[in-house]
């Protein structure tokens, strides 16, 4: 405990107070979101404003869940995110293994090149994706979206898996080889099980990225058949009178599928081993 010898209870107390205040600032908007989502619309207009609903209602949630366009969009989001996650892992895990464990230092320049693609501004893809997707008739399709999202998820996933593979002691593989394991056995029995936390984290990251992606979905989908949930939220906004109750209910529903994965990966963050890709 490095804090032990540094005795300054006042400073420690100040740290707790500051963190409590910061947590309140962070938590308040979410509490307000939930409070709004269960507040009857009449109570929006009371003066002075009542922060907590006097007569809580699930009306807004029902309105959202009865909206077939929203359900369709949620389904689209789920499909796109799942497919993107699967493809991202299928491509990035073998690639990371090959570049880190097989090519070693010679794989490093390629890894750096892949990582740097992570920081390409989405704006340079606005037009080429639009034209290319139109050319191959993939505008307004989930396939087109999957393609666009891979440009975002692949570099990040590769880097995250590479980071976890790098931490693997090489002696383990050597020992297994001496024991007569084939390369394939080594990958299946030794490398994958040990690297699995990193792989799971990368998968969750890909899912969350695709789930909340907004820019490409806005640009390349205009029909309900391919619209994802974030874009539909935007259409709720475009309506003449914004229905904030319904909006907040939709926001809560949209946040839920991220909550559980987050609970899993936030431990990874807190370990402080967030290198490279994880930071992005």
């Amino acid at each position: 405990m490095r804090q032990g010898p540094r005795n300054a209870p006042a400073l420690t107390a100040a740290a707790y107070l500051f963190l409590a205040a910061a947590s309140a600032v962070v938590a308040f908007p979410y509490l307000w979101m939930v409070a709004t989502s269960i507040k009857p619309i009449e109570e929006f207009f009371t003066y002075p404003l009542q922060w907590l609903p006097a007569r809580p209602t699930l009306r807004h949630y029902l309105a959202v869940l009865e909206d077939t366009r929203f359900l369709r969009a949620l389904l689209n989001s789920a499909i796109v995110s799942t497919v993107v996650t699967a493809i991202s892992l299928l491509l990035s895990v073998p690639a990371a293994y090959g570049l880190v464990r097989l090519a070693g230092t010679r794989g490093r320049p390629m890894l750096i090149a892949i990582l740097s693609a992570q920081f390409f501004p989405p704006m340079i893809f606005f037009i080429p994706f639009y034209i290319l997707l139109a050319e191959v008739k993939l505008l307004n399709t989930l396939t087109g979206l999957v393609f666009a999202y891979l440009s975002v998820t692949l570099p990040i996933c590769t880097w995250m898996v590479a980071t976890s593979l790098r931490a693997l002691p090489r002696e383990l593989e050597e020992a297994a080889r001496i024991d007569g394991c084939s390369d394939v056995q080594i990958i299946w029995r030794i490398v994958l099980p040990i690297a699995s936390p990193g792989i799971v984290t990368a998968g969750i990251f890909a899912f969350v990225l695709a789930w909340q992606e907004y820019i490409f979905a806005l640009l390349y989908t205009t029909t309900p058949a391919a619209q994802t949930a974030p874009v539909l939220m935007f259409y709720y906004l475009g309506q003449h009178q914004i229905d904030y109750g319904r909006m907040m209910a939709a926001a809560v529903l949209l946040s839920l599928p991220i909550a559980l994965p987050f609970a899993i990966i936030q431990r990874h963050y807190r370990q402080g081993r967030n290198e490279g890709g994880v930071k992005g």
């Binding site: 908007p29 979410y30 307000w32 979101m33 709004t36 969350v208 789930w211 909340q212 907004y214 974030p230 939220m233 935007f234 906004l237 904030y244 909006m247 907040m248 926001a251 949209l254 946040s255 991220i258 987050f262 990966i265 936030q266």
Partner: peptide, 13 residues
């Protein structure tokens, strides 16, 4: 880890 759209509409409100 919150989605951009959620943060945007939340602050709009």
């Amino acid at each position: 880890v919150s989605s951009f759209v959620v943060v945007a509409v939340l602050f709009l409100w």
